[in-house]
Design a binder for these strands. Structure first.
Lengths: 222, 222
DNA sequence: TAGATTGTTAATCGATTAACAATC
DNA sequence: TAGATTGTTAATCGATTAACAATC
């Protein structure tokens, strides 16, 4: 996958949803405009960085005033296309898969799982959150027919690559992978890996280093 | 939180668990030694980067041969302390909270949720995966008594800060936050945010840019 | 107007990548 | 030995941070 296609820094892409979530609470609090100084204070980020991030959405702020909250929210929605629902398929209806199916929050991000797949005959045929679980082998045909672009993998590690291949066969071009596996995809397919073990490892190592540094006291500095 | 404490690059910390997961499959396949060239080929990473990452764990490789797989696995376990179980508290027993409770995989990363908390009287008193759900107000006392260091937040956004404050009061010093909220913590407390919306946003934006760039064809280059 | 804030350009910092000597 | 691979130092690249003019 050549990188030139993606001219927006990935750190920026990850921060933008944070601003969005934050601005929702700002709007709910009745504020009409907000400055980067204020956002940065609440989110622990530097104001110039916020300004640069927001500039990618195309919004213009007003000197002395800041940004119009509702306009900024709309800009972010337009930027990510959250107004238009993207339909997705989920493979692997285990604990994590069910949690993903049940999470209503995705609706706000233009994301909707419309069908789920599994190989377990005990699960196939059941319905979770109005989503029917179908046998895995039906995925390629169905996704091609429904023009599905996004697939979510919540399977065990050892079948993740196989599932990804089936998705790509069915015309899926974006894969959200929750399996702890390094999936190989051809050019023209985007993969986003979510690895809980990575986050956990970062947390526990930082905690360990903190303890070792002697900064760990019963009473923390507030 | 001063950064000097953490002298290992965060990207490295996030990649190390990936190597670990991969090396497990290598070991299962019966391979005794492996080179960075080989790892890099399977994981889509540059060999020198892998070498630098692994060097942080203190392992020494052998020129011409590579790294001893079982030694490397043990090095990674020691580095992260995955042999010693870290007990944790979970707050918020909704869909995501339940999925986290039920995920057995954490055991391999020295992580175990030993108690869960909620404010919903319908859930308090129930047991999921041998973990009892207790009323939230008992958290500070209990975590202090049990010397719990890690807390997991899987609550709605609007109570996340409050829950974090209770955890810190109870002596918890590492917070794994799944709520879409910017939590403020005092010096001496580590926070690790997991934001599913961020990953989803990155995926959908990349897909959108890919389509716009005209590289999106029915047939992908394999 | 004065001052706060935006937007942009320059400087810094850190991670990745390249180069290459050391080693088995 | 020859050659593949490690380990390390140097160069590059990109993101963050600092500086400052423009603006309302």
């Amino acid at each position: 996958m050549d990188k030139q296609v993606f001219n927006i820094p990935e750190p920026t892409l990850k921060r933008l949803p944070l601003y969005y979530q934050y601005l929702k609470t700002v709007l709910a609090a009745g504020r009409e405009a907000i400055s980067c100084t204020h956002i940065g204070n609440d989110l622990n980020l530097d104001p110039p960085q916020i300004r640069k991030d927001l500039a990618f959405t195309g919004i213009r702020g007003m000197p002395k005033v800041g940004y119009q909250v509702d306009t900024l929210l709309r800009c972010l929605e337009d930027f990510f296309g959250w107004n238009r629902i993207d339909e997705a398929f989920l493979v692997g209806v285990g604990n994590l898969g069910k949690a993903l199916l049940q999470y209503e929050g995705f609706a706000h991000y233009g994301f909707k799982i419309v069908a789920a797949f599994d190989v377990d005959s005990q699960i196939v045929g059941k319905t979770f959150c109005n989503v029917r679980v179908l046998p895995l082998e039906k995925l390629p045909n169905l996704s091609a027919r429904m023009k599905i672009r996004i697939g979510v993998i919540a399977t065990p590690q050892n079948v993740a690559q196989q599932v990804a291949d089936m998705m790509i066969d069915g015309g899926i071009r974006g894969i959200w992978n929750f399996a702890p596996a390094a999936i190989k995809v051809p050019d023209g397919v985007v993969i986003q890996n979510e690895n809980l073990a990575a986050g956990l490892a970062v947390l526990s190592k930082k905690l360990q280093l903190l303890v070792q540094s002697g900064k760990f006291r019963q009473e923390v500095v507030k």
